[in-house]
Design a protein around this nucleic acid. Sequence first.
DNA 1: AAAAACACTTGATCAAGCTCAATACAAATT
DNA 2: AATTTGTATTGAGCTTGATCAAGTGTTTTT
Lengths: 252, 252
Amino acid sequence: MTNRNVVSFENIKVACKNCGLATLCLPMGLSPEDMERLDSIVKRGRPFHRGDHLFREGDNLHSLRVITSGSVKTFTPSEDGGEQVLSFHLPGELIGLDAIQNECHTCSAKALETTAVCEIPFHNLEELSSSMPSLQHQMYRLLSREIGQDSEMLTLLGKKSAEERLATFLLSFSERFKKRGFSATDFFLSMSRHEIGNYLGLAVETVSRLFTRFQDEGLLHVERKHVQLLDLPRLATIVHGNENGRPHQRHV
Amino acid sequence: MTNRNVVSFENIKVACKNCGLATLCLPMGLSPEDMERLDSIVKRGRPFHRGDHLFREGDNLHSLRVITSGSVKTFTPSEDGGEQVLSFHLPGELIGLDAIQNECHTCSAKALETTAVCEIPFHNLEELSSSMPSLQHQMYRLLSREIGQDSEMLTLLGKKSAEERLATFLLSFSERFKKRGFSATDFFLSMSRHEIGNYLGLAVETVSRLFTRFQDEGLLHVERKHVQLLDLPRLATIVHGNENGRPHQRHV
DNA sequence: AAAAACACTTGATCAAGCTCAATACAAATT
DNA sequence: AATTTGTATTGAGCTTGATCAAGTGTTTTT
């Protein structure tokens, strides 16, 4: 999420109403008064550094967290040191929702770079949402959105080829950066190739080869974490499975 | 979900308080009075038949639905007639949660057999939950649970071998049937091999071969849709990736 | 009852992508 | 500046599971 047109969030966001992310985030759609009430329960702590855990699988749920700058991966660690990356989160995104069910986190979250978050103590949030229908509504929507996103990911992992997976991944970041006021075609990926592969259900080597191939085909320019997308339309074609002609794609 | 010890739900469930599923379902944990209030907004319609749509992708969200008997698959249809099966639902499970975000269903739902449902108009539910903290809490929990389940599925599709996938699938049904008072080791799967494969990200042929192999290895007896699990412990071992020795498993 | 349509199984072959291995490159440490 | 460590790339070969194909059994239709 490092990017040149970044405006250093840390200095601005002291309250939701002054936060550039308010339109993407939990207070989206709240009246100024309601936003004020929500703001009163939000805690803003010191930033996390690369590799720091925001929380670990098994931790009790205290707060939901919104990324305000930086980026985070969530993942489920497995016994043998392996892990499954569940998602990468950018500013404005709410994490910890999986923990509501049993008041216990079912995944871990780690900062991919220097990252600031707003903490929202869940019990306070729940109480507040009881007396604030618009906040309750927003919570339902955000929870539902998460479910919808997971479904898309299931389709990606269940049906798509390696090529389609990486193209989908890149366009997803493109859109999300754009929505946050950054370039849709020129950005830094804060995660490693290993983490990308893990997330997409691919081996590191496959990810690396695909980046090389995409570059050779003029779809993008890549140098380490810096990616420049050169042909969004063609990437979009790949995402939808090379409709015309459809070479190899997994069983339909 | 056809099963001999089934007690014909249709005749009993006329109100939540008399419903055997109340402990699994939305009213779980509600006081008798609150359950009564919830009950007042629930609609119970005529049953769906095998192949009937409960709703289609793109439909406006009117109601969430709880299966009361039978079973349902949810899936996202793709242009070319293909689909990705997202999940199979048994009695007591709430479906349509993905539609809350945009008040529009993002997947379709089809009855796998004769199926009865309770409809809960979402706007009424939302309103009611505003004045009923325990119901709001329950909604948050159910939405969160769905997210957690999806995460498990992501791990399955991202990391597990075909063998592990089918074993996981079978034990999941075993537990869910058990929770509903049915046999954990002897049940009918209401979906086709094709649908199982689609759900697990495998080809039909692979599913068929695995059933045969599992049977040859004495893990189960299978005859068409009728499955008898003969060795739960060994199936559980397979689920966790054959820890000891770990022959083939996908990149960790 | 026969025919058609559908679902499942089994076999043979193939390829996408994984694994192993070596090398290149970058960043951190001395 | 040199060494170490971690990350990324590239190559060669192998394996899992997909695809193609044929055959069997089941259900539905006529």
